[in-house]
């Protein structure tokens, strides 16, 4: 179980982003986390993955505080190009995490032909799959996936999530953060909603309604393009 126990966090002296949030992700579970933009989803993700340290409360991995060495909790976020050394080739980037799992490489659609290239020479979606492959080493027990498929086209998104679901079937716990209600409804085994620093459970039928509404209603937005200079 990857647990956050009553954690709080604030950037500098600003108002706290999270206060007293508790959350658990079990092995083999895909927990879908949604919430409005800027509500602290990514902060929570960084806290869980050890990229940030909470002001109070604790993050526990299988009941213990994280030890040194390969972290059993790996974090992948939307901006893949920030997660890799821009001076390394793709092959070296993958090697840093140990031998490449060939089966997973094929599932994620990572081509060996990219290995000789630099990160800026492949597309954002391709790099995202490289970062996922790197994060899913044999010692990874939990994955915090923050908008991992937001950069992917629909077909690749399906492929990536099929690979992740297969991993979850083999015991990987995943916290899937996304704005896409329809996506979370497809992949998550359980759903949570973060709003104003609090976590709320989401019932299936309610999210179905949001997800299927789909099309944006254009008329009602408080926008006045007429204010623009002509």
């Amino acid at each position: 179980m990857l647990e956050a126990r009553d954690i709080s966090f604030a950037y500098g002296r600003a108002a706290p982003v999270l206060s007293g949030v508790s959350l658990g992700v079990g092995r083999g579970e895909i927990v879908g986390l949604s919430g409005p933009s800027g509500c602290g989803k990514s902060t929570l993700a960084r806290l869980l993955a050890g990229y940030l340290t909470s002001r109070s409360g604790a993050v526990l991995v299988d009941g213990a505080a994280p030890a040194k060495g390969w972290s059993p909790v790996q974090y992948v976020h939307q901006a893949a190009y920030l997660s890799v050394d821009p001076r390394w080739r793709i092959g070296a980037i993958l090697d840093e995490a140990g031998p490449v799992d060939e089966a997973l490489r094929n599932q994620l659609g990572v081509s060996r032909r990219w290995f000789e290239r630099y990160p800026h020479e492949i597309s954002g979606g391709e790099l995202q799959r490289v970062v996922l492959l790197r994060a899913l080493g044999p010692r990874t027990r939990y994955l915090v996936a923050d908008e991992v498929s937001a950069m992917l086209d629909p077909i690749t998104q399906v492929e990536v999530w099929q690979a992740l679901q297969a991993r979850a079937g083999a015991g990987l716990g995943i916290l899937a953060i996304s704005h896409g209600d329809a996506l979370l409804e497809r992949v998550a085994t359980r759903r949570l909603h973060l709003e104003a620093g609090r976590l709320l459970p989401v019932s299936g039928s309610a999210t179905k309604a949001i997800g299927n509404a789909g099309s944006p209603q254009c008329g009602k937005w408080p926008l006045e393009p007429a204010n623009l200079p002509a």
Binding site: S34, G35, S37, E147, A150, M151, H179, G180, I210, P216
Partner: peptide
């Protein structure tokens, strides 16, 4: 990408 449904 990265926007919630309302903002998108």
């Amino acid at each position: 990408s990265g926007l919630d449904a309302d903002n998108a």
